[in-house]
Design a protein around this nucleic acid. Structure first.
Length: 299
DNA sequence: TTCATTTGACCAGA
DNA sequence: TCTGGTCAAATGAA
């Protein structure tokens, strides 16, 4: 009855862990994906050793690189874990147990119209480039934190049906950043109706569908709905990050105009978590995989 | 005054 | 009947 979730490679590689409904079976497909994920994790470990050796003694750069590589490695572990438990992806937990047993309470499928859902575990659920508006919050049985419901800020104006749910992981890494499970619903249609310009007038979109920061000189990064200019030092950090991302992505730097990458948000408020009372996410921790792509595009 | 968030109620699927 | 998802009135902030 329950449809299996099957990973997809986003056209732009935007999400670390994406799933779409698929027919049951396809074991070979899963095996191949798990094999590639394992390979990625292995290479990440090697890269980590190499990068840390090169950056030794370089303070913040070293710390940033270490953090990012740790997260990349963790993301691979999560993916592998999810893929490994193909019969019930939601019930599996990754190496560090960050995926909650949230849907374990029956994994009941509510009013989702059979819409494919993309699941992502990220420390920065709010900086995905879109403007979200919170429309509900619900305490989910068997989970410690409430689940917040967001829909696209252009839901009314442009009839965009995109939604996302954000839920803090039950056991965030001790001492590490808080991790959030983000589930995306419908695709964004707002940027198709009125591409980029309406969302971020002075940021051009590259052929890949990603933001082309070169058009405005400096990269931008959304933070709690605001747009901040990055200093040269921060830019260098992001270039470093993007380099790592490129290595990890290998040849999978696909082009294409998916919805994940989105555009920088404009917006006076953006989608603040829990009424905007959430603490601002540090630059380092707000860099999730999707952000890497934005930066990568500037190279 | 406008708009976003909060929160209890309602609806529908399992 | 239970639970997740959505609605909409109330509330607060800018």
């Amino acid at each position: 009855m329950q449809t299996q979730s099957r990973p997809i490679v986003n056209a732009n590689g935007g999400a670390a862990t994406c799933f779409e409904s698929a027919a049951e079976g396809d074991e070979q497909y899963y095996e191949a994906v798990v094999r590639e994920l394992a390979r990625g994790q292995e290479l990440t470990g090697e890269l980590q050793a190499e990068v840390l050796r090169v950056l030794r003694g370089q303070g913040q750069s070293e710390a940033t690189a270490a953090f990012i590589l740790r997260e990349v490695s963790r993301a691979f572990a999560v993916c592998i874990s999810i893929m490994g438990g193909s019969s019930s992806p939601a019930a599996t937990s990754p190496a560090d147990g960050t995926l909650p047993a949230a849907s374990g309470a029956g994994a009941r499928r509510a009013k989702d119209d059979g819409v494919p859902r993309k699941r992502t575990v990220t420390p920065s659920p709010y900086s995905d480039g879109y403007q979200w508006r919170k429309y509900g919050q619900k305490r989910i049985i068997g989970t410690k934190f409430p689940r917040c419901y967001y829909r696209c800020g252009y839901h009314r104006e442009r009839g965009c049906r995109a939604t996302k749910q954000v839920q803090e992981e039950q056991h965030s890494n001790a001492g590490g950043p808080r991790m959030y499970l983000v589930i995306y619903g419908h695709e964004h249609t707002c940027h198709r109706a009125s591409p980029t310009a309406a969302v971020e007038p002075d940021v051009a979109r590259s052929p890949t569908g990603l933001l082309d920061f070169s058009a405005v000189g400096l990269p931008r990064q959304q933070e709690q709905g605001g747009v901040v200019q990055l200093s040269k030092e921060e830019l260098e950090q992001q270039v470093l990050v993007s380099s790592l991302a490129c290595v990890l992505q290998g040849s999978q730097c696909y082009s294409g105009g998916g919805s994940q990458e989105g555009s920088s948000s404009q917006g006076r408020t953006g989608a603040g978590e829990d009424g905007g009372s959430a603490p601002a996410v540090p630059v380092e921790t707000s860099l999730d995989v999707m952000d890497y792509y934005d930066v990568t595009d500037t190279l």
